[in-house]
Design a protein around this nucleic acid. Sequence first.
DNA 1: ATAAACTCTATAATTTTTATAGGGTTTATA
DNA 2: TATAAACCCTATAAAAATTATAGAGTTTAT
Lengths: 138, 138
Amino acid sequence: MLSKKTKYALHALTYLGKHKAEGTVLIHNIAEEHGISHKFLENILLELRKAGYLGSKKGKGGGYYLIKEPKDIPLSRVIRLLDGPIALLPCVSLNYYEPCAECKNEALCGINKVMAQVRDETLKILENKTLQDILEGE
Amino acid sequence: MLSKKTKYALHALTYLGKHKAEGTVLIHNIAEEHGISHKFLENILLELRKAGYLGSKKGKGGGYYLIKEPKDIPLSRVIRLLDGPIALLPCVSLNYYEPCAECKNEALCGINKVMAQVRDETLKILENKTLQDILEGE
DNA sequence: ATAAACTCTATAATTTTTATAGGGTTTATA
DNA sequence: TATAAACCCTATAAAAATTATAGAGTTTAT
């Protein structure tokens, strides 16, 4: 399951996508719309900005806005940013690889092999679904 | 990512599949092979037995053994049993459904729609990979 | 009778996630 | 140029979930 962080990030991105015409949007408005803690959401938007998905304007009249096209924001990226690996095991993660302590030899591990396949097929799904798809469903 | 519980369950099932000829296998042997806590693994094997994957023999000379064919143990089942939902959000879980607090109307939620598609496609993957596939990779 | 091995439930320890707090910086505008 | 609005940043607290342990049953081969 996705963490609340990732879920809220998706809500925020969706909100920003829908309100693109308004220029900037306040954290406050997004938080209120979904009943999310303002401060918690603040941290999430900060991460999304640092990762290059959002721009911000400081000071009075400021706010956040999308700086990427919705079609260029795949679920895979948002999930990796906020939740970490998409792979089901650390030993097959492309971006967060770590060996599994209980496994003596990865090359001889059937679980490793199958999970690498699962990862590849899962990635295909998550790379092909974008914010655009979410927006089209609203 | 899978919890250690699920990961250890897969190791245990694999071990039991490989040692099918021996009749029963001791918790101890599996735990030692992978450096897993005996007691922790004990709880996991208990769950697998209650779920109908394993049989056990009590008393001296007892142990665990597979009672399902490896091809009839899909990853989806093992994951659901030990880790819970496969869906990325509670609002699209088939087996563990719960509404999302921050969502006013599921029918109008683009995230919900996309995640239902992701769930369907992910399930296809996890229902088609079985213990058999793992065993063939060892 | 005894020891081996699974059964079951409770609880403790650890880690991760979620949430809050509060001072800092920037900027529009009166 | 003072002020208030709004994002910036880091630290810490609270809550929840995961991981691990404990210990008293029960069953069974010998």
